[in-house]
């Protein structure tokens, strides 16, 4: 694997391979000294053109635990509006001799453009509304771990909220479907993409109709700018119709688990405190983030002899 840019490029076998590899990384992270020399001498650059705390820190922690060197190039969105500086930046950093770019950008497609400008590997840490493959890996791993099963046949994943603008939703729809889950999208039509008829999903506009048949409830963040753009009349109405409150929690089957990619909008999509819910996986999502990203970086950078390197990791 040269790049990790989308779940569809990764494919089913790649997805399963990375999830299996993540188990080894969880073991590494449980050690008293959670660090292995697998990527010693490799350099990983974080290229973040959009604010992110947890994803960037999670990647950097992952790289360090594999003994890679890390560099951070962090630019606020406002100061970058000229793409030629992006190509210059990528080519300049490439000239320094780096092995991977971890890229987040508000524009769809940037990881593909960057991979035309460098011979380093490119990891998509979120591009526009398009893809966020490591988040989907984290979410699949977390469900596997929590439910103790490798495939999701017979399970229903219900994704609630702003599907249209969500890279997390697009990556998760692909990933959970590959593992056999039934996927249900719940949103007002204004927050759905124009035509989802070719996606392996069912669609509902009423959250209360689908809660009873949900095994994994995945709440998406609603950005307040969606209100000014006319996608929803106001946040209160959205919270009333699509927010998770105590009554709706009561309608979920007792076995159902709750997920959220963070950061949460309390009082909007989350009307309850998830820490009071026994089946919330939100903390596990965060803590698994480092292990998943270690697996990704290892898979991309350990090279042909990754099997032998794996013994270093697993020992």
């Amino acid at each position: 694997m040269k790049h990790l840019r989308s779940i569809d490029e990764l494919g089913h076998d790649g997805l399963v391979r990375l999830l299996e590899l993540t188990n080894h990384m969880v073991e590494v992270n449980s050690r008293p000294v959670p660090k292995v020399p697998a990527l010693r001498g490799r350099t990983v650059v974080s290229l973040f053109f959009e604010d992110s705390t947890r994803t960037r820190l999670s990647f950097e922690t992952a790289a360090k635990r594999l003994s890679a060197d890390t560099m951070t190039f962090s630019v606020s969105t406002s100061s970058v509006n000229k793409g030629e500086s992006l190509r210059d930046t990528v080519e300049t950093i490439t000239d320094m001799g780096v092995d991977a770019f971890v890229v987040r950008h508000k524009s769809t497609g940037i990881p593909w453009q960057i991979s035309d400008w460098t011979n380093a590997s490119v990891v998509n840490a979120g591009d526009g509304w398009h893809q966020h493959p490591t988040q989907a890996l984290v979410d699949c791993f977390t469900v596997r771990q929590a439910l103790g099963r490798e495939r999701f046949d017979g399970l229903t994943l219900t994704i609630v909220g702003d599907i249209k603008h969500s890279r997390v939703a697009r990556s998760n729809i692909s990933a959970f479907s590959m593992l056999g889950a039934r996927v249900v999208l719940v949103a007002p039509p204004t927050l759905l993409p124009p035509d989802v008829s070719h996606w392996p999903v069912e669609v509902s506009h009423r959250l209360d109709d689908v809660l009873g048949s949900t095994d994994i409830l995945y709440m998406l963040r609603l950005q307040s700018e969606r209100m000014s753009q006319g996608h929803v009349p106001n946040l209160r109405e959205y919270a009333e119709t699509f927010g998770l409150d105590a009554v709706r929690v009561g309608r979920l089957p007792s076995r159902a688990v709750l997920m959220h990619p963070g950061p949460m909008n309390r009082g909007v999509e989350m009307m309850v405190d998830p820490s009071t819910l026994p089946n919330s996986l939100i903390h596990q999502q965060v803590s698994n983030g480092v292990s998943v990203r270690m697996a990704v970086l290892f898979d991309l950078l350990a090279g042909e002899s990754s099997a032998s390197h794996l013994s270093q990791v697993a020992s």
Binding site: T108, W129, H130, Q131, R167, R170, P193, P194, D195, S197
Partner: peptide, 18 residues
């Protein structure tokens, strides 16, 4: 808007041009 509003823009996450 960036591309034709269609199934393709749905998957690519590009704003659709109806």
């Amino acid at each position: 808007a960036v591309m034709n509003e269609c199934q393709c823009c749905t998957s690519l996450g590009l704003p659709g041009w109806p």
